[in-house]
Write a protein that binds this DNA or RNA. Structure first.
Lengths: 144, 144
DNA sequence: TTTAATTAGGATGCCTTTGTCTTAATTAAA
DNA sequence: TTTAATTAAGACAAAGGCATCCTAATTAAA
């Protein structure tokens, strides 16, 4: 469904959010240990999230990655997915047709529409705060 | 969502079904032209569908691929997807956790469940006959 | 029985994604 | 101002998906 990069990006964002609530910046090393991902690759993905203004980076000693506390509840899952995987996941044709719309649908167009809108809905209505709270309360996990 | 191989496999199956209704066998060349796919690669995918008993192949002169007319309405989209992509699409964890279930859920587990069950539902309740009729009636297309 | 047409299958190559490594740029603190 | 810690960025390597090619196996018809 999502690319590996996107999976890592979502989990990393959640971990950064949790720490940002406590005013703590985190490094790619801490992040990758917590979400069980390759460190250097994770760092690359963080760069993309920084470029897209989803997370913030502070260079130099005592630096790291953080998210503005007040912003956490406004960051939707869809933004993270968009920054890394783009919008093909809920825009592209299920059977790979170049043109696929009401006028020229692929054979599964109508049936797929429902699934895709459910997915879009879910990505649009889930924010980082909700996900972070799930982890903090111990009712969800970032690895294993 | 689906792999390229799976997209080709679905479209090929639909085209074979249409022709089987008219008692006609089709070759990888005809198929790939009709669904706009690479011929040799499509042939490989057809082999997988034959191995899984979804389509039937007849070797030698006047051979080709076909589907038992009476079977067409019983072949679910889920069978084709399963034969090519496996079941990870509606079984795997959305964030790639090794273990992700009610006892040990990833942060998006509950939200994802809905999307996945909608997808599974769609794949289980769509059969080749429906898709073939859409094409025959001109209300859906296999390419462009 | 030979031939021509056809699917099966293995070997190979290319491209994208995934992942690593090294160096540059930046910055807080000593 | 120097140092140590840190992110940024580009080059490189590995793996997997996508695609091609060649040969073997099969079979209907001549």
């Amino acid at each position: 469904m999502f690319s590996k990069a996107c999976e890592y990006g979502i989990k990393a964002s959640i971990f950064i959010a949790i720490n940002s609530y406590e005013g703590k910046r985190v490094s790619p090393k801490e992040i990758s240990e917590e979400i069980d991902s390759p460190t250097a690759f994770t760092a690359k993905i963080l760069q993309a999230l920084v470029r897209d203004n989803i997370i913030n980076s502070v260079k130099g000693a005592y630096g790291g990655f953080e998210i503005d506390k007040n912003k956490i509840s406004t960051i939707k899952l869809s933004q993270i997915v968009n920054a890394i995987d783009g919008d093909k996941i809920y825009k592209g044709c299920g059977l790979g047709l170049h043109t696929c719309d009401e006028d020229h649908p692929c054979p599964v167009h109508d049936k797929f529409k429902i699934v895709r809108s459910e997915l879009r809905n879910m990505l649009e209505n889930t924010n980082l705060e909700q996900l972070a709270l799930n982890i903090k309360s111990g009712s969800a996990f970032l690895k294993i």
